[in-house]
Nucleic acid binder design. Structure first.
Lengths: 157, 157
DNA sequence: GGGCTGGTACTCGGATAAGTTGTGTCCGAGTGCTTCTGG
DNA sequence: CCAGAAGCACTCGGACACAACTTATCCGAGTACCAGCCC
């Protein structure tokens, strides 16, 4: 039960991109977060496939959000990186072994799977309630403005 | 983001053990669930270490629940098998890279970690709300009594 | 006949190998900027 | 001086190795039951 480590980097990138007006190259994002440039590039490609960011090729290219940050939920990013499949997958143990229950008598779903699905929904709802915009607002509120300015200045360099 | 497959087997075993009065051997549980005997044995050992089940050695030994099924939550089983660590672990990206924020200025927790922790709590709360007893009651209510009887008869054989 | 002792067969427990998924990396295709040349 | 086109440097994109973890397995230690023996 371990989430991909790339999720954290992807979220940080999205928060940063929400404050950027020009495309930011993957290499810059990687250097800023002290991450593997090539590996973070892979995560950005996943975000691009999910339609959350748009890549701008060329010399002064990079990545940019496709939507306003307030319309991108944390769940969107998590599912883009980590996949949208639930953590628990019922293998229908009931229908296996010497005491197997025939499939036609399994009209009700396995209660274990139900519990897991319910928990998964609760988790996803919690992540869906927060947007990248919310995160960015919290960051700007709790970080000294001088630091924010130095970061944007570093990005332009 | 994938949970250990052993969780499902462990939960099924606990539900079955909640209805057992005599110790049930790991080999029987494995055969009933059509699982690897040795691998399921490992899961049972994890449950034993967590104090959820008690092993009875000897010729007619096996496993038995240590507490009433109504006092064992699904979360207990999940954490016993899959570990109690949260799926997301904050690596404090803020304190890394050229624009690192000094640790002494990080008085507020990373908002990303906060969101993830909140979602994790929601997930755990959902799993904690259901006990093995609840699951067992659902199973007995939705399964024909003849099948339940044949299972207990098979266990005694 | 009852109690004790030794043997045995069964159980669990930890230490030990393969498969699969994440992690990290590399090089090729494509595009926008720059510069040089010609009018 | 301006327009056009070629060159170039930078970008992203997908295909390729490495590592960690989950999965699966084996063999050894320990214990309750059972049979035999002694009292």
């Amino acid at each position: 039960m371990k989430m991909s480590g790339g999720v954290e980097w992807a979220l940080h990138c999205c928060v940063l991109l929400s404050a950027a007006t020009e495309p930011v190259a993957a290499a810059k994002l990687a250097e800023l977060h002290d991450a593997s440039p090539t590996y973070l590039a892979k995560q950005l490609q996943l975000l691009s496939r999910a339609g959350l960011v748009r890549s701008a090729p060329g010399q002064s290219g990079g990545y940019l959000l496709t939507r306003p940050a307030t319309e991108i939920t944390v769940l969107d990013v998590v599912e883009a990186i980590d996949g949208s499949q639930p953590a628990f997958r019922c293998t229908e143990v009931r229908q296996r072994g010497p005491m197997a229950i025939p499939a036609e008598r399994c009209d009700t779903p396995c209660p274990i799977a139900q519990v897991m699905e319910s928990a998964d929904h609760a988790w996803r709802d919690s992540l869906r309630a927060v947007t990248i915009g919310t995160l960015a607002a919290t960051v700007t509120a709790t970080t000294p403005s001088e630091l924010l300015n130095s970061v944007s200045a570093w990005l332009s360099s």
